[in-house]
Design a protein around this nucleic acid. Structure first.
Lengths: 144, 144
DNA sequence: GCACACCCTGTAGTAGCTACAGAGTCAAGA
DNA sequence: TCTTGACTCTGTAGCTACTACAGGGTGTGC
């Protein structure tokens, strides 16, 4: 199959497929007599693997590691498990950080309830201050 | 004050200050006789404003808008309020998306409980499948 | 006079694509 | 047979918000 068909099957862009090839994530395919890339099932599978990982928020370096494990099917899968654990840890950290950010934004938003000029707006006044723990409304509750 | 002092006061890198200048976020400062940038209080305040916004997850385009509002102190601050509301909306969306991702990762992680080869590992087997709603364990509960 | 910290400009790199330009190829219809 | 449109090719530049040099000049304290 040609690159357009492949991209369609996995639901990504043609350019993305070529990008993965350049990055060495998928093997260089054969070319037909016109110089067009010609893909087989194994390419499709690898590409699905990559896109599946990406859909779970994995980075390409991590997917590269997983592909490495995949090339050693008889190896112990503890590396895979560890990689997943790292993903989970990271996403939990991100969720926590975002939660903090949300609280900060809510506190800041509350500084301007009624219509004001930009000069008088509590949000603008707060932003004009340095980020200081326990000083500006959005960073008031932050721990030191 | 010189760039090093300025950067220290707001807690960012010297290169970042120069970057903001290139981007037009802070005004070009005067130069002393050696060609060194010479900053005043207004530069410090603008930089604090920018860093404060960044610490709240705002993008530079958004901060640019806020700086614009700041240049019109007598204007109505509804634009500021709206911008904050967009921030909040965005972060709530992100938190929700991350929550989904976390559930997916947990489901995937559960596919491999005991030690296996890479070939037999439930995680690897799932990743080999296409991302299919209600088909792979991590995307089983996703809505269509 | 020297060492060392600071400053300058300009350029390249990061992540993961996306979006062209400019050219070639293929298949179907008039 | 000619043309049209969809596809493919390579190579390069752009996106975000910095960060990290290289290679050079300047300022200060001892």
């Amino acid at each position: 199959m040609r690159i357009g068909e492949l991209a369609k099957q996995v639901g990504c862009d043609v350019e993305t497929v070529r990008y993965y090839e350049r990055e060495g994530l998928i093997a260089e395919p054969e070319r037909d007599q016109s110089g067009y890339r010609s893909y087989g099932v194994s390419h499709l599978e690898t590409l699905q693997f990559i896109r599946h990982g990406r859909s779970l928020g994995m980075k390409l370096v991590e997917i590269r590691q997983l592909l490495n494990f995949r090339h050693h099917p008889d190896g112990d899968c503890s590396g895979v498990d560890a990689l997943l654990d790292v993903q989970l840890e990271r996403i939990e950290e991100q969720i926590a950080a975002m939660g903090t950010l949300k609280e900060q934004l809510i506190a800041l938003r509350a500084e301007c309830e009624q219509r004001q000029t930009n000069r008088g707006c509590g949000i603008m006044r707060s932003l004009n201050q340095a980020v200081q723990i326990r000083q500006c409304p959005c960073h008031r509750d932050e721990s030191v």
